[in-house]
Design a protein around this nucleic acid. Sequence first.
DNA 1: CCGTGTTTGTTCAAAATTCAAGAAGAGGGC
DNA 2: GCCCTCTTCTTGAATTTTGAACAAACACGG
Lengths: 172, 172
Amino acid sequence: MDPMNTAPASADAPRWLTGEEQRIWRSYLHATTLLEDHLDRQLQRDAGMPHVYYGLLVGLAEAPHRRLRMTELAMKAKITRSRLSHAIARLEKSGWVRREDCPSDKRGQLAVLTDAGMEVLKRSAPGHVAAVRQALFERLTPEQQKSLGEIMQIVAEGLQPDDAGADLPWLR
Amino acid sequence: MDPMNTAPASADAPRWLTGEEQRIWRSYLHATTLLEDHLDRQLQRDAGMPHVYYGLLVGLAEAPHRRLRMTELAMKAKITRSRLSHAIARLEKSGWVRREDCPSDKRGQLAVLTDAGMEVLKRSAPGHVAAVRQALFERLTPEQQKSLGEIMQIVAEGLQPDDAGADLPWLR
DNA sequence: CCGTGTTTGTTCAAAATTCAAGAAGAGGGC
DNA sequence: GCCCTCTTCTTGAATTTTGAACAAACACGG
């Protein structure tokens, strides 16, 4: 009846994590930071860019005509437009991306993957995939892989900026 | 018999991710970046520091006498000593940590959690735990939580700098 | 005690990220 | 048209992170 009764946000007696939850959370933190660092170093060494930037090139390579509006690319990569602006500037300086004006919207910019960008992707993709494989998939059973996919899907959905009000169902 | 036969590293025909593996990997990337951003903003707003810094305070709070050698703290938090140096400098400027010389090793430094640091921890912990709960645990079944713990444990173990040569068992 | 190699922690500069602010265009309503 | 609001993207400054280089102290074989 009373929504405040079932979700006391953060007031009153805080509900701490149980010992088991703490172990899970710590494992999560350790695994994710170690993996991200690992891939960052691998790509910095082999491709000359951090993991996020690599992800941007992949996003462009998959898009029709290898180009995407800034906002779309930002959403696809789950980063802010500001961050993307800086990132694209850097990738442009490296010659892997160029900007184009959007014909239909004079405010808009298209990020376009250059041939050089496609090249560096082709060249570094195998090593990157191998790293992901070795760090993640090779260590997990098929069941664990499936489970991981479901779990991450759920978590991601719960955090989409779009679904911001998802925890206020009575306002929908 | 021949180790090279079972692990062609990254040469020759690269073994790409299957469609299902790609979905899993993307979900992983989206979930982890969204969650880390979410917690970073939450803590920046409520505690005035990013998530990693908060983790450092927690690490100190758990340590005997609320103090830890720099290297130990760095290992506990899975970050480099360089990064830790900067972070501690910042936390020191905020008054939440202070440095002490290590008695037994003149090279060493101890990072010590101050009372003010303990205060900010106490004050912001409930909100942080609530955020973790809401973003992660509340959305997963007990089985999924258990599975997540096991998976992350495995991944983390595989990336520990200590275990660097774990994929070269014949050298052990 | 003297070298030699390692560990510890810091520093610098360069790179990356965040946040707030802002310019410029789009999209209506009137 | 005009006004108002929202969207798009960029910018600049401050913060954070990285990687290499470094000094100081340790460890230890000789």
